[in-house]
């Protein structure tokens, strides 16, 4: 099977404490997979390693069939990400930010692509506003536009609907699912929103203390833990209640 993302014994330690402890991931192409876990579970560290921003202590990462540690720059052209915790330059307008990143990602027909995304994400009125003046929800949409600029085959999202009102959050989820359906792209996301995970994801990976403690489709996890929603499953795992 062809995987969009694979890790092999991926490990990261800080001062001899394992933030991520030898995890093995295999994420199929075209899937939407959620990475769940409480604070300090290792989600952000895993994401940072997948983006090439953090060097693993040991282990390997293969993205879209290629070794990330050896071919980061060429892989990065087909990958993108969005996180509410990493800003775009605040003093630049949304259009200027998209222009800059469009060039960095080598996006062809850039102006057309920016307008296409602005329409899809309903940010046309925001294009000439400085990123720093936007509300949290508007920033999330602008950041999503940046993450879709290069039509990524692998989209890494950190809490994609954080700070969004329920209506906008629902709209963003639909947009992401439509993007996956139309493009066949793989979406790998960290989220604390269990409703979102149940609605969007084919596969859920649960991390705790740097290790993967469970994995399966939302339905399978509900059955395994005999629960009615993923939030209860999450609490069971966080509080060491056995399945």
């Amino acid at each position: 099977m062809s995987y969009a993302l694979q890790t092999h014994e991926l490990r990261k330690t800080f001062n001899n404490v394992a933030a991520v402890d030898s995890i093995n991931l295999e994420i199929g192409r075209g899937s939407i997979t959620a990475l769940l876990g409480g604070n300090g579970a290792g989600k952000s560290t895993t994401m940072a390693m997948l983006l090439g921003l953090l060097q693993p202590t040991s282990g390997g990462i293969t993205l879209l069939g290629r070794d990330l540690l050896k071919e980061r720059a060429s892989i990065a052209a087909q990958v993108n990400f969005s996180s509410p915790y990493v800003d775009l330059p605040n003093r630049l307008t949304v259009r200027q930010n998209l222009n800059v990143y469009g060039h960095l990602y080598g996006v062809p027909h850039l102006q057309n692509r920016i307008m296409e995304l602005a329409e899809q994400l309903q940010i046309i009125p925001l294009l000439n506003r400085k990123y720093g003046t936007l509300s949290a929800g508007q920033r999330t949409r602008a950041s999503l536009a940046k993450s879709l600029l290069n039509k990524p085959q692998l989209l890494l999202l950190d809490e994609p609907t954080a700070s969004l009102d329920p209506d906008t959050a629902d709209w963003v989820r639909t947009l992401l699912m439509d993007y996956r359906k139309a493009s066949g792209a793989t979406v790998f996301m960290a989220s604390h929103n269990m409703y979102e995970v149940e609605r969007m994801c084919d596969d859920v990976i649960v991390m705790k203390a740097g290790s993967i403690v469970d994995r399966g489709s939302p339905q399978k996890l509900l059955e395994t833990y005999s629960r009615e929603n993923l939030e209860e499953v999450f609490l069971d795992i966080a509080r060491n209640r056995t399945a």
């Binding site: 052209a77 087909q78 330059p89 630049l92 200027q96 222009n99 800059v100 990143y101 469009g102 060039h103 960095l104 080598g106 062809p108 296409e116 899809q120 039509k151 990524p152 085959q153 439509d178 993007y179 359906k181 139309a182 493009s183 066949g184 792209a185």
Partner: peptide, 27 residues
Amino acid sequence: MTSPAIAQPESAFFLFLRRIWGLMLRH
């Protein structure tokens, strides 16, 4: 939605220049 993998055959040197240009634009 449009399909992914739209990369056109642009030379590595051209892409390099675009990245430098992107940084220049940023500033």
